[in-house]
Deep mutational scan, measured.
Amino acid sequence: TKVFYNGTYVEFNNPEKAKKYAEKVAKKVGGTFTEKNGQFHVE
């Protein structure tokens, strides 16, 4: 499961961990995250 952010991504074996990371990054940058095709995108 990949989490895309700012033109790069971090890959996780565990979708649950990926979601938590996406939430954390989104919170940090004051943005939101969306799930597309089983991957997370932070905006």
Rank of each mutant, 00 (worst) to 15 (best):
Thr1Leu: 06
Thr1Gly: 04
Thr1Pro: 06
Lys2Phe: 10
Lys2Ile: 08
Lys2Glu: 02
Lys2Leu: 10
Lys2Gln: 06
Lys2Gly: 09
Val3Trp: 00
Val3Cys: 05
Val3Leu: 02
Phe4His: 07
Phe4Thr: 04
Phe4Leu: 04
Phe4Glu: 03
Phe4Asp: 01
Phe4Val: 06
Tyr5Cys: 09
Tyr5Ile: 09
Tyr5Asn: 03
Tyr5Glu: 02
Tyr5Val: 08
Tyr5Gly: 01
Tyr5His: 08
Tyr5Trp: 10
Asn6Gly: 11
Asn6Ile: 05
Asn6Met: 12
Asn6Ser: 07
Asn6Phe: 09
Gly7His: 07
Gly7Met: 05
Gly7Val: 02
Gly7Cys: 10
Gly7Ser: 06
Gly7Glu: 06
Thr8Ile: 11
Thr8Asp: 08
Thr8Met: 12
Thr8Ala: 11
Thr8Ser: 12
Tyr9Gln: 06
Tyr9Trp: 13
Tyr9Met: 10
Tyr9Ala: 08
Val10Pro: 00
Val10Met: 10
Val10Leu: 10
Val10Thr: 10
Val10His: 07
Glu11Val: 14
Glu11Lys: 09
Glu11Pro: 05
Glu11Asn: 08
Glu11Gln: 11
Glu11Thr: 14
Phe12Trp: 04
Phe12Glu: 00
Phe12Gln: 01
Asn13Gly: 11
Asn13Ile: 11
Asn13Trp: 10
Asn13Asp: 15
Asn13Cys: 11
Asn13Leu: 12
Asn13Val: 12
Asn14Pro: 01
Asn14His: 09
Asn14Ile: 06
Asn14Val: 06
Asn14Met: 06
Asn14Thr: 14
Pro15Thr: 10
Pro15Lys: 15
Pro15Asp: 05
Pro15Ser: 11
Pro15Cys: 12
Pro15Arg: 15
Pro15His: 15
Pro15Glu: 08
Glu16Lys: 10
Glu16Thr: 10
Glu16Pro: 02
Glu16Gly: 09
Glu16Gln: 11
Glu16Ala: 11
Glu16Asn: 09
Glu16Phe: 09
Glu16Val: 10
Lys17Ala: 15
Lys17His: 14
Lys17Thr: 14
Lys17Phe: 11
Lys17Arg: 12
Lys17Trp: 11
Lys17Pro: 05
Lys17Cys: 14
Ala18Ser: 02
Ala18Trp: 01
Ala18Val: 00
Ala18Leu: 00
Ala18Cys: 03
Ala18Arg: 00
Ala18Pro: 00
Lys19Thr: 03
Lys19Tyr: 10
Lys19Gly: 04
Lys19Arg: 15
Lys19Leu: 10
Lys20Val: 11
Lys20Phe: 08
Lys20Leu: 13
Lys20Ser: 11
Lys20Met: 12
Lys20Pro: 03
Lys20Ile: 12
Lys20Cys: 08
Lys20His: 10
Tyr21Lys: 00
Tyr21Pro: 01
Tyr21Trp: 13
Tyr21His: 08
Tyr21Gly: 01
Tyr21Asn: 02
Tyr21Thr: 02
Tyr21Cys: 08
Ala22Cys: 05
Ala22Trp: 02
Ala22Asn: 00
Ala22Pro: 01
Ala22His: 00
Ala22Ser: 03
Glu23Tyr: 07
Glu23Phe: 06
Glu23Gln: 12
Glu23Ala: 12
Glu23His: 08
Glu23Trp: 07
Glu23Pro: 00
Lys24Gln: 14
Lys24Thr: 13
Lys24Glu: 15
Lys24Ser: 14
Lys24Ile: 12
Lys24Trp: 15
Lys24Ala: 15
Lys24Met: 15
Val25Gly: 02
Val25Trp: 13
Val25Tyr: 08
Val25Asp: 01
Val25Ile: 15
Val25Thr: 08
Val25Leu: 15
Ala26Leu: 03
Ala26Val: 05
Ala26His: 03
Ala26Cys: 08
Ala26Pro: 01
Ala26Phe: 02
Ala26Glu: 00
Ala26Gln: 02
Lys27Val: 09
Lys27Ser: 10
Lys27Gln: 13
Lys27Glu: 12
Lys27Phe: 09
Lys27Ile: 12
Lys27Met: 12
Lys28Asp: 13
Lys28Tyr: 13
Lys28Asn: 10
Lys28Leu: 15
Lys28Cys: 15
Val29Lys: 05
Val29His: 08
Val29Ala: 06
Val29Phe: 11
Gly30Cys: 13
Gly30Lys: 08
Gly30Asp: 06
Gly30Glu: 05
Gly30Leu: 06
Gly30Phe: 06
Gly30Arg: 07
Gly30Tyr: 05
Gly31Thr: 07
Gly31Lys: 04
Gly31Met: 06
Gly31Asn: 03
Thr32Ile: 13
Thr32Leu: 08
Thr32Pro: 02
Thr32Ser: 11
Thr32Asp: 05
Thr32His: 11
Thr32Gln: 09
Thr32Trp: 14
Phe33Glu: 01
Phe33Gln: 03
Phe33Ser: 06
Phe33Asp: 02
Phe33Val: 15
Phe33Ala: 09
Phe33Tyr: 14
Phe33Met: 12
Thr34Arg: 11
Thr34Ser: 12
Thr34Met: 10
Thr34Gln: 10
Thr34Tyr: 15
Glu35His: 07
Glu35Gln: 10
Glu35Asp: 05
Glu35Met: 10
Glu35Asn: 06
Glu35Lys: 07
Glu35Ala: 06
Lys36Trp: 09
Lys36Ile: 14
Lys36His: 10
Lys36Ala: 08
Lys36Asn: 08
Asn37Trp: 07
Asn37Thr: 04
Asn37His: 09
Asn37Ser: 07
Asn37Tyr: 08
Asn37Ala: 08
Asn37Phe: 09
Asn37Gly: 09
Gly38Cys: 05
Gly38Ala: 05
Gly38Leu: 04
Gly38Glu: 04
Gly38Asn: 06
Gly38Val: 00
Gly38His: 05
Gln39Leu: 06
Gln39Asn: 15
Gln39Phe: 07
Gln39Arg: 04
Gln39His: 15
Gln39Met: 11
Phe40Gly: 00
Phe40Ala: 01
Phe40Ile: 08
Phe40Cys: 03
Phe40Tyr: 13
Phe40Leu: 07
Phe40Gln: 02
His41Glu: 06
His41Arg: 06
His41Trp: 15
His41Lys: 05
Val42Gln: 01
Val42Tyr: 03
Val42Gly: 00
Val42Lys: 01
Val42Trp: 04
Val42Leu: 04
Val42Met: 03
Val42Phe: 04
Glu43Ile: 15
Glu43Arg: 10
Glu43Phe: 15
Glu43Tyr: 15
Glu43Ser: 13
Glu43Cys: 10
